[in-house]
């Protein structure tokens, strides 16, 4: 729907359709579908790099667990499965809400889109707060630190500092991804407020959703490997 705006006396085209309807794909793509597919393929490739990044941590985890099983068993004892489990539930729920957000964008449900994005952000922040308040800060101040920073006086195994190295490394990089997710979803929220997303254009919601799922999946692996091994 295009109307001619005569308010300024000129013949300028005033297009008052919402952004997602008037969105024109970038010039070097032949169709909007090609652009959407390209973005999605690009995101999948990026996710492959993410998985390979974390696989480095998982390999380090596996090798040291094989070398020092006792340190790993001890290390796992220091972690509280309750908080880990709660965080797992939170992330699973947030995965659901972001999936719903994509659905909302496709169905042009602008209000619910925003609600679901806000829920996802709240979950992500809750995850970080729990991680900091009940895990990182108490453990760090008790001296359960990685490598040469380790000062915990009651360690029973000389290789516990390595366990903490792997623990902080893996969960720290994951937490950075969660924070990145908060920023990205916040950006989506601002754009959603401007009604940028709708049935004809929801690429950004889709690919951030993919990113958020991978953050979730990595945690699904980290949780049992760190909290539930013995």
């Amino acid at each position: 729907m295009t109307t001619i705006d005569t308010r300024h006396g000129g013949g300028e085209v005033l297009d008052d359709r919402p952004y997602h309807e008037k969105y024109k794909h970038a010039a070097h793509f032949r169709t909007a579908e090609a652009e959407f597919d390209a973005c999605k393929l690009g995101m999948w490739l990026f996710l492959a790099t993410e998985i390979l990044t974390f696989s480095g941590m998982f390999v380090a985890y596996g090798i040291f667990r094989m070398m020092y099983p006792q340190a790993w068993a001890n290390g796992s004892h220091y972690l509280d499965p309750f908080w880990g489990g709660l965080n797992t539930v939170i992330l699973l729920y947030s995965s659901f809400t972001i999936a719903m957000a994509i659905h909302n964008a496709q169905k042009n449900q602008q209000f619910w889109l925003k609600v679901n994005l806000i829920q996802t952000i709240v979950c992500a922040i809750a995850f970080i707060v729990i991680k900091l308040a009940f895990e990182y800060i108490p453990k760090w101040s008790a001296g359960k630190r990685p490598g040469s920073l380790f000062t915990y006086p009651f360690a029973e195994n000389p290789y516990e500092p390595i366990w903490w190295g792997v623990y902080y490394g893996a969960t720290g990089i994951h937490a950075l991804h969660v924070l990145t997710g908060v920023v990205l979803i916040g950006w989506l929220l601002i754009r959603a407020q401007k009604k940028h997303f709708g049935p004809t254009h929801y690429t950004a919601v889709e690919i951030v959703g993919l990113f958020w799922h991978i953050v979730d999946i990595v945690w699904i692996f980290l949780f049992p490997l760190l909290y539930l091994i013995d």
């Binding site: 070398m67 490598g147 920073l149 500092p161």
Partner: peptide, 13 residues
């Protein structure tokens, strides 16, 4: 931080 993952003195490899 001397995490120790690659440091033989701390059990790293």
């Amino acid at each position: 931080f001397n995490v120790g993952v690659f440091d033989p003195r701390m059990g790293g490899d």
